[in-house]
């Protein structure tokens, strides 16, 4: 089947990016990467794009395909072409373009470096670690990351604040914080809780939705936040906000904004409240900041709290 490919191209020497169309004979089983290779090996060798493994494991080929980030090498053409008649291919968004489909990954790698991306073992001399399967499971998802950049490309917070640590580096950070061998958990959490850190995520879920490897960066962020509170890393606006939220609801069944602001901005929380914020964060149950006056359901609220508390005690 002849399929039209519209490719967003940029030449460093030309001021404006432009669209170029190619017609590619597509056979069953062909991926977008196959089509790009076909174009560059025939019609137009000047087309630049990254590729290596062509089996969805090296992270080279994430592109915006028909509007969404995808790995070119694991995206079958026929199913999309049948639906939309043509396939558009653009570089990843939220990234600076170098040429054609090649974007600058420097900021991506720099963010990785910011999270001290290596294990700092609690015990350097230990010959062998005994690690329970469930401990390994805690970091398994985050570990599947192939550093393709898809998540950062669709991250709303990153779009607004380029300095935000972003989903990919957060997943990497959790991979260490959640590792039973790690020896500097708290220090890591303190840094991650700082400016441009994990509390800046607005939980739009895009990262997890578009991750091609099911690494679930948002889950990592939630785990990091929970762990931070658990470890008492609360001297930062993000954690304080969550804790005062929990407190406010417990007291009046709704958000008491005035008090919350006060607390968020500078009131050392008693450690007793920490587990609540933590549990709610883990389960994604922190309510949206909508103001209700009614607090008739206070009884129910109390019940929820004691239920959560019970579950926490059970572990």
């Amino acid at each position: 089947m002849k399929t039209k490919f519209k490719i967003r191209r940029s030449d460093p020497l030309k001021a404006e990016p432009y669209w170029q169309a190619y017609s590619v004979e597509v056979k069953e089983g062909m991926t977008v990467l196959d089509a790009l290779l076909k174009i560059s090996e025939g019609d137009d060798p000047t087309l630049s794009f990254r590729r290596s493994c062509r089996s969805a494991i090296c992270g080279s080929c994430a592109l915006t395909i028909n509007g969404f980030p995808k790995l070119a090498c694991s995206t079958q053409i026929l199913p999309i072409a049948k639906e939309t008649r043509e396939v558009t291919v653009e570089p990843l968004s939220n990234h600076q373009v170098i040429k054609d489909l090649v974007v600058d990954f420097t900021p991506f790698w720099n963010k990785m470096e910011k999270v001290t991306p290596f294990l700092l073992p609690a015990d350097e001399t230990r010959k062998e670690w005994v690690i329970k399967k469930e401990d390994e499971k805690a970091i398994d998802r985050a570990q599947k990351c192939i550093m393709c950049g898809s998540c950062n490309a669709v991250c709303n917070s990153l779009d607004v604040d380029p300095n935000f640590i972003g989903p990919a580096a957060s997943a990497k950070a959790w991979r260490f914080v959640g590792d039973v061998r790690e020896g500097h958990r708290k220090k890591r959490l303190e840094r991650l809780s700082g400016e441009h850190g994990v509390w800046d995520c607005v939980r739009c879920v895009h990262c997890t939705e578009y991750c091609p490897k099911d690494a679930a960066p948002l889950e990592a962020i939630e785990r990091l936040r929970a762990k931070a509170i658990e470890e008492g890393v609360v001297e930062n606006p993000g954690a304080k906000h969550v804790l005062s939220l929990v407190d406010s609801i417990k007291r009046v069944g709704r958000l008491d904004e005035a008090a919350m602001t006060f607390k968020t901005l500078g009131f050392l929380r008693s450690l007793g409240m920490i587990p609540f914020g933590l549990k709610m964060e883990i389960h994604g149950k922190l309510p949206h900041p909508i103001i209700f006056l009614a607090i008739e359901g206070m009884k129910e609220v109390k019940k929820i709290y004691s239920a959560v508390e019970k579950r926490r005690k059970k572990g």
Partner: peptide
């Protein structure tokens, strides 16, 4: 292999955690 593990490599484990 043991050194890889100390570097931070994650290996699948048996029931005893080895």
């Amino acid at each position: 292999i043991m050194e890889l593990e100390r570097m931070g490599a994650v290996f699948s484990r048996d029931d005893a955690g080895k």
